[in-house]
């Protein structure tokens, strides 16, 4: 039998289906791990962080690949803001516990916002992971209305962003996380306005201040 895959599959599909399969297996690993933890009465947070880190990395890789080829689809649905930030916080909870960094979630927006839930979730998770890596002890995640848009902010008490902001470097040289975050923010459009990222230092906690503004 001659297997001729080239006719039916293109690069993006091969990558996507491989990642799909890998995430299914990570789900198996994660549930078995949780079951074993419960049965044995042990806690294996490092293993959990490794699994969720691998999953995040896989989906971010696929998003970046698609973005670079302008193939990342958008699907805007109304997303309850409080739920979005709660989910982002839950995703990184174990990592924060391991690093002994506190995470405060402040929800100042009641209601839903039109956005792509999967993509914005990746933006937030990356910002939280970054903050956790650089913070001394505290991080806040805050959602609030600003100038007719929604502002999702992550502030930490670390040294702040380096002077040459990675997102301003030419494409490809920056870390993946902020690069795709900027693209994702920009892809959100409403009433003739585009979303944007703002990276600065300061804020109430004095360290890096990441803000994703969605129109």
């Amino acid at each position: 039998m001659r297997v001729d895959m080239q006719h039916t599959l293109v690069g993006a599909d091969v990558l996507a289906s491989g990642i799909h399969d890998a995430k299914n297996r990570l789900f198996e690993a994660q549930t078995l791990l949780a079951q074993a933890e419960a049965e044995q009465g042990v806690k294996l947070p490092d293993a959990r962080v490794a699994i969720s880190g691998a999953a995040t990395r896989l989906s971010r890789t696929l998003i970046a690949y698609r973005l670079l080829r302008d193939q990342q689809p958008m699907a805007i649905v109304p997303v309850t803001v409080a739920e979005l930030i709660e989910d982002a916080a839950t995703t990184v909870r174990t990592q924060f516990e391991r690093a002994a960094v506190g995470l405060t979630v402040i929800d100042r927006y009641a209601g839903a916002w039109p956005l792509d839930r999967t993509l914005v979730m990746d933006v937030l998770v990356n910002a939280l992971q970054n903050a956790c890596r650089h913070a001394r002890a505290e991080v806040t995640l805050i959602a609030q209305a600003r100038e007719g848009g929604l502002c999702l902010g992550v502030n930490d008490d670390g040294p702040g962003f380096p002077p040459a902001l990675p997102v301003q470097r030419p494409e490809g040289q920056s870390g993946l996380g902020l690069f795709i975050a900027a693209r994702i923010a920009g892809m959100h459009q409403r009433k003739g306005r585009c979303g944007s990222l703002s990276l600065s230092s300061g804020g109430p906690l004095g360290g890096a201040l990441f803000e994703c503004n969605l129109p």
């Binding site: 990642i19 799909h20 699907a75 792509d116 999967t118």
Partner: peptide, 12 residues
């Protein structure tokens, strides 16, 4: 689902 573009389905 493990399909990260599932939101496409939802919105359609």
């Amino acid at each position: 689902t493990a399909e990260q573009t599932y939101e496409q389905v939802i919105s359609a």
